[in-house]
Design a protein around this nucleic acid. Structure first.
Lengths: 192, 192
DNA sequence: CCCATGTGAGACATCTTTGTCTCATCACGG
DNA sequence: CCGTGATGAGACAAAGATGTCTCACATGGG
C-alpha cells in the first residue's frame, strides 16, 4: 500500500505547511516564501513542489479559511435556539481560525479581481441570516444592519486575534471579550 | 518673501501627496511607489525628492495618522461630560482619519521593530483612560478591560472604513454604526 | 531677457523575491 | 542490497521594485 502511504504523507505535510504559513503570515503578512518554508520546517524547493507559487499558497490558505469558517458555521448550528447563544457558539467555534481569518481579511488582493471566491459570499450570507433571525424575533436591535453586524464580527475577530498575538489580551479571554462586545457592547446593562 | 512662498508650496504639496498616498494605500497596501506618485499626480522622481523612500513615506503617514488621532482626541474632549457621549464624539472626530488608521493598523512592520513610535502608546493610553473613567462611574461594564475596548475600537473603525470603502455600508452611517455597536452591542435593550 | 529652481521623463544599476533547475542524500520497500 | 522517490541545499536567471542619476522643459523672479 505504498500508494496510500504516499497520499497520506502528502496530506499531512500539506496541512502542516498550510497551518505554519497561516501562523506566520498572520504575524507578518509580507513574509518571504523562504521564511514560510523555514517556518514549516521544510525547504523552499519542497514548498514550491506543493504550492506552485505564492499566489497558489494564498489561494490554498483562502480555501482553508473558507472551509474552517463553514465548519464553524455548521458546528455552531446557527438556526438552533436563541440567536444570541448561536452567535456565542459561532465565535467559540471560529476562534481557532481567527488568526487565519485576520490574515485573509487584510489580503485585499483576494477581493480586487473580478473572480473572487464565492465561498465568502456564502459565509457572509449565513452570518447575516443569523442576525436577521435575531432581529426578527426581537433579540437584536434593528438599527444596525445585518451586513454591518457581519463586518463588525470580522473586525472584532481580527482585532481580538491581533490583541492576543501581541499579548494585550489573554488567549482564554478571546471568546468572552469578542462575544460580549459584539452582543452587549461597552455600556453596562441595567440589572433587571 | 520667496522663501515663505517656497515653504508654503512645499507644505501644500507634501500634504496633498500624503493624503493621496493614504487614500491609495488604504485600498491597496502593496501599491508601488510609482502608483503612489501617479495617484498624487506627480512623478516618481518628485515623490522621491519629498520622501527619500518607501519607508520614509510610511513613517510620514504614521506621523500624520498620530497627529490626526491626537487632534481628534483633543476635539472630542474625552474628560468632559458622560463617558458614552465622549466616546461618540471621539468616533465622530476620528472618522475622517479612519481609512488612514486602518492602513496603519495593518502595517505591522511599524510595530515589530524595537523602535516604535511612542505616539501610539500615548493615544492608547488616552482612549483607555476614557474607558476606565466610564467603568469607574458605572457607565461601562467592568468585565471588558480598557485595553480590549481600545483594541475593539480600532478594529471596528477599520471594519467600518473597509465596509464603507467597498460600498457595503453607507458613508453617512459610519459614525452611528461604529458608535452604537461599540457602546450598545447587537442585543436589543429593554425599554426602561 | 536670463537664470534659477522645481518638475517630468527616462535610463541605469542594485536589491529582493521568485521560479526553475540540478545534484547529492536519505528513507523505505522489494 | 538495490532502486525508487521525496527532500534539502544551492546555483541560476527572470521579474519587479527601488534608489540614483541625467537631461530637457517650464515657470517665475530679478
Amino acid at each position: 500500500m505504498s500508494h496510500m502511504g504516499y497520499r497520506r504523507l502528502m496530506a499531512v505535510d500539506r496541512d502542516h505547511v498550510l497551518r505554519s504559513a497561516a501562523a506566520l503570515l498572520t504575524r507578518k503578512s509580507t513574509a518571504t516564501m523562504d521564511e514560510v518554508a523555514k517556518a514549516a520546517g521544510i525547504s523552499r524547493a519542497t514548498l514550491h513542489r506543493q504550492f506552485s507559487g505564492r499566489d497558489a499558497l494564498v489561494r490554498a490558505l483562502e480555501s482553508l479559511g473558507i472551509a474552517e469558517c463553514e465548519a464553524a458555521l455548521d458546528a455552531a448550528r446557527l438556526a438552533d435556539g436563541p440567536a444570541a447563544d448561536a452567535a456565542r457558539r459561532l465565535i467559540r467555534e471560529i476562534e481557532p481560525a481567527a488568526g487565519l481569518l485576520a490574515f485573509l481579511y487584510t489580503e485585499n488582493q483576494l477581493f480586487e479581481g473580478e473572480q473572487q471566491n464565492a465561498g465568502w459570499a456564502r459565509i457572509d450570507e449565513r452570518i447575516a441570516e443569523l442576525f436577521r433571525r435575531g432581529q426578527a424575533d426581537g433579540t437584536f436591535r434593528i438599527d444596525l444592519s445585518p451586513g454591518w453586524l457581519t463586518e463588525a464580527l470580522y473586525g472584532l475577530l481580527a482585532a481580538a486575534s491581533w490583541a492576543v498575538c501581541e499579548g494585550r489580551v489573554a488567549p482564554r479571554d478571546f471568546t468572552h471579550m469578542t462575544a460580549e462586545l459584539l452582543l452587549g457592547g461597552a455600556l453596562r446593562r441595567e440589572e433587571p
